[in-house]
Nucleic acid binder design. Structure first.
Lengths: 204, 204
DNA sequence: GGACATCTCCCACGGATGGGGGATGCCAAG
DNA sequence: CTTGGCATCCCCCATCCGTGGGAGATGTCC
């Protein structure tokens, strides 16, 4: 059922993670990427349930890759893999939107527990905000770039007119985007939209 | 440094959790509660970094205890302990605001990983949202109970009139509470208030 | 008793919000 | 080429929101 995308430049580490993942029930497929760029390219194709992303890699690092991935696909679930459990690493990964982190020398069971946790957490976040009645959409309908920008503006306390000025749009256009994102999110007003945005991990 | 409150009616389970917690670096104190009511009473005294809460207990169950605890102290971090990994249990715990769940027959390492995860997540949530600029308030001015209720209503997309009906207040009174919580939170409107509420950990 | 916080309610007002339409252009997918 | 999604803009309109000031009713703390 579930696919995991393992992103690490070291084949050795990927091997280790493969072995750890094999003991997680429900994981039916493991796909590899050896760079952040490759992970970004593969995600839309594979649409994995979970991404295990190394922090330090050649090219764009894991933190940057996670940031880009999550900005394009906020529904992605990313767990960072770090060398040492430095507080900075944890802070930066979670600041980037990752759901958790793993230390590379973690035991098989720790990896398994973290994976299960991340997945169940993701599951819960997407199933819990469900108790709305007239949502036509079961799966999370992705917001467009404009809708995201409008939503962000709302979370900052901007009025529609102010958002329009910041984005060089007319207020009417902002209102149109707002109306559509309310529908997608099942929100009655901007306040609820912001709340749903946080729960869906679209805003931080 | 960190204190953990273990809440379970079974002394045997508490023992097991104690042993598992002993292998988590940074956990310096473990306090017990044998019922949901006791956990509620002990929390303000101990102010633990983490609460491990059994779902099924005599009296108010763990789900209800977690709900009440989180409504009174939204900054609490709760991990539910369940018998079997039923999807319903997971959904209900996380719906109640818990950070995760543990299966009772989990291995020592699984418990350790989940505890670390929950704590680091809580840490990140509280340390990351620092980069705000023009907030006059460095320390969080506490919201009153009414203000919290109004804020929660807003995050659910309720209008002032609807919040008033739910709390048996006039709409004018709701507006008064709203005005004051906007000032305390430095918010321009309800949307920004909800955003700040999430960043301060007042809403989940 | 007096200071203080909290909670409650009132009135009035301008402006913002959200919903309903409709319209145009663009571009990629079929 | 036609369909569909996205973005852009326009109109109208009922309702809601946020803010101003005022005021009484509880408590608690010293």
């Amino acid at each position: 059922m579930a696919t995991v995308l393992v992103c690490d430049d070291s084949a050795l580490v990927r091997e280790t993670l493969h072995r750890a993942l094999s003991s997680v029930p429900g994981i039916t497929r493991v796909v590899d990427a050896s760079s952040g760029e490759e992970a970004l390219a593969r995600w839309p194709v594979e649409r994995p349930s979970l991404v295990l992303m190394d922090v330090r890699m050649p090219g764009i690092g894991g933190v940057e890759a996670a940031r880009r991935l999550l900005s394009r696909h906020p529904e992605a679930i990313v767990v960072m893999v770090t060398m040492a459990e430095d507080a900075d690493g944890v802070a930066r990964s979670v600041a980037g939107g990752a759901r958790g982190y793993l230390v590379k020398d973690a035991s098989r069971e720790e990896v398994a527990a973290t994976v299960v946790y991340a997945l169940s957490d993701g599951l819960a976040r997407r199933t819990v905000p469900a108790p709305r009645s007239n949502d036509a959409n079961v799966s999370a309908p992705p917001l467009t770039e404009r809708e995201m920008q409008v939503l962000t503006g709302m979370s900052r306390g901007r009025s529609n007119a102010e958002i329009g000025k910041e984005l060089y749009l007319s207020e009417d256009t902002v209102k149109t985007h707002a109306r559509r994102l309310f529908r997608k999110m099942g929100a009655a007003d901007r306040a609820q939209a912001v709340a749903v945005g946080f729960r869906w991990g679209l805003i931080r």
